[in-house]
């Protein structure tokens, strides 16, 4: 198996006698989008700060493409592009001057590359204006631009969709998928927007109170629970209830004004439909509502409790 681009080994952080991160161990592979999910104060930003070397680790180590961020900072950080919390840029400089600033620090970033990145994040028209005139969404885009400037192999984005409109969120999601699939970047995305994670990530790690309590692929996550509730829209509700109970032996979750809702597995949906139709019940629609990641997340973390 290929080597992970980032490896965390038993990473701990203690601040003022309080353990904020309790020994995180995981790896992220090239081409993978890893979702870092957790309620407020779970320790997502703290972990990201340690990965990029802004905070020291109390224990453990982090390797980026094999280089320890502790001992070999320059070699390790070269491979990382990141946004930590909000993408704060120099407001009195233009977007372009900001990018020029970071390109000088990376070395080997050509003017062509700067233009390319500006084009990619869609800031071409406003790039020569001062950042103080930018909207939150535009700052987020500029943040993404500075993270991609030096063509890193690891991308770390702390809440990248914060402040973006739905179209912007979609766009970012597309970049992220494309960067992972086409350019094999290893990407960490932290977010509270759970529905977002579902669409964007390959794997999701749930962190709570500084502990990684679950890591699963998105598919496993969603399909974990096989039972789903399925709503059948019918004309004769009473008859449908009787038929479903007598002939299919299914538990009726509830009866609705326009139909019934059953707790089923996927394979049972056509059977129920057929039975209903055989009994001359008119079937207008079938709608299944799978358990969302959000339900799952709240189930695992036990609601909205903050550390």
């Amino acid at each position: 198996m290929e080597k992970p681009a980032i490896t965390l080994e038993n990473v701990k952080k203690v601040i003022g006698g309080k353990t904020i991160i309790h020994g995180l161990t995981f790896g992220i592979y090239p081409g993978e989008v890893f979702g870092f999910l957790g309620p407020n104060g779970a320790g997502k930003t703290t972990t990201i700060r340690m990965i990029v070397g802004l905070m020291s680790m109390t224990e453990g180590n982090i390797y980026i493409q094999g280089h320890s961020i502790k001992k070999d900072f320059k070699k390790a950080i070269k491979n990382i592009g990141a946004i930590v919390e909000n993408p704060e840029m120099y407001k009195f400089l233009t977007g372009y001057q900001n990018l020029l600033h970071y390109s000088r620090m990376a070395g080997g970033v050509s003017r062509e590359r700067i233009s390319e990145v500006i084009e990619l994040v869609g800031l071409k028209d406003r790039i020569h204006e001062k950042v103080k005139t930018y909207s939150l969404g535009m700052r987020q885009r500029l943040g993404l631009a500075q993270a991609l400037l030096h063509s890193p192999s690891v991308l770390i984005l702390d809440e990248p969709t914060n402040g973006l409109d739905p179209a912007g969120i979609r766009e970012i999601r597309h970049y992220i998928r494309r960067l992972a699939e086409k350019e094999s970047l290893a990407i960490i995305v932290s977010s509270h927007l759970l529905s977002e994670m579902e669409l964007m990530c390959d794997r999701i790690g749930i962190i709570q109170k500084g502990q990684l309590i679950d890591v699963q692929t998105v598919n496993d996550f969603v399909q974990d629970e096989k039972q789903m509730s399925v709503a059948f829209t019918v004309d004769d509700i009473d008859k449908a209830v009787r038929v479903a109970a007598e002939q299919c032996h299914f538990k009726i979750v509830k009866t609705k004004s326009d139909g019934i809702e059953l707790q089923l597995e996927k394979e049972q949906i056509p059977i129920v439909a057929e039975t209903l139709m055989k009994n001359k019940i008119k079937l207008y629609g079938i709608e299944s509502t799978a358990k969302t990641l959000e339900d799952k997340f709240l189930e695992i973390t036990g609601g909205k409790e903050i550390v």
Binding site: I77, V84, N86, Y102, A106, G107
Partner: peptide
Amino acid sequence: SGTIKLLLIRP
């Protein structure tokens, strides 16, 4: 201004 974060994650 918080710009220190982006300043110090460079090689």
